[in-house]
Simulated assay, not measured.
Amino acid sequence: MTVTILFFQIALPLALLGWILLLPSGSATGLLLQTAGVAAFLFALARIAQWALPVWWLPWAYGALWLAIAVAVLALRPSIAGLPVWPTGLGWTSAVLGAALMATGGWFGAQALSGRSPPPVEVVEIGNPFARGQFLVASGGSHPIVNAHMRTLDNSVERFRPWRGQSYAVDFFGLGPWGLRARGWRPADPAAYAIFGAELRAPCSGVVVAAEGHWPDYEVPDQDMVNRLGNHVILRCGAADIVLAHMRQGSISVAPGDRVDIGNRLGEVGNSGASTEPHLHIHAQRPAPDGAPPISGEPLGLRIDGRILVRGDRINGADG
Rank of each mutant, 00 (worst) to 15 (best):
I242E: 01
F135L: 01
G18Q: 05
L14V: 08
I304R: 13
L67F: 12
G184L: 05
T276D: 09
S205W: 14
G179M: 03
R265D: 03
V243G: 01
G133E: 01
D305W: 14
G301T: 07
I10V: 11
L65G: 00
R307F: 13
L22W: 15
L235P: 01
L14H: 14
A210Q: 07
L153V: 04
P78D: 03
I145T: 05
A110Q: 11
W86E: 00
E158C: 03
G257N: 15
L16S: 06
M102I: 08
Q9C: 00
P294D: 03
G37I: 03
R311F: 07
G297N: 00
T35G: 05
W178Y: 15
A52E: 06
D217M: 10
V55F: 15
L244A: 07
L42Q: 11
P256M: 12
E212T: 15
I126E: 07
A188S: 12
F135S: 07
P24H: 11
G291Q: 10
A64I: 14
L113D: 11
D290M: 14
L53E: 10
A169F: 08
G176H: 04
C237N: 03
R77W: 13
W57V: 07
G26T: 05
N271E: 11
C204F: 00
D171T: 06
L17H: 11
A68M: 08
D189W: 13
A138T: 11
Q9T: 04
G133C: 02
Q134H: 15
E277N: 10
N271F: 09
F172H: 01
V243Q: 04
S296R: 12
S167A: 14
I195K: 08
I80T: 13
A49R: 15
V55G: 14
G317R: 05
G301A: 07
R307S: 10
W60S: 11
M247D: 08
A68Y: 13
P256W: 15
V124D: 04
V123W: 11
G140M: 09
G257C: 12
L65N: 02
F130I: 06
W57H: 10
A36H: 11
V260E: 05
G206F: 11
E268L: 12
M225C: 07
Y193H: 02
D217P: 00
G184W: 09
A64F: 14
G213D: 03
L31A: 15
E212L: 15
L136S: 10
Y168T: 06
L31E: 07
P78N: 09
P289I: 09
G267H: 10
L229K: 14
E158H: 14
P216M: 00
Q111N: 13
A39D: 04
G89V: 04
P221D: 03
A274H: 12
F8G: 00
G37P: 04
L229H: 14
V220C: 02
W163C: 01
A95W: 09
S79M: 02
L67M: 15
S79Y: 12
G133V: 01
G184S: 05
P216N: 00
V157R: 15
N264K: 12
M150N: 05
F172C: 01
P187T: 02
A39E: 06
L22V: 06
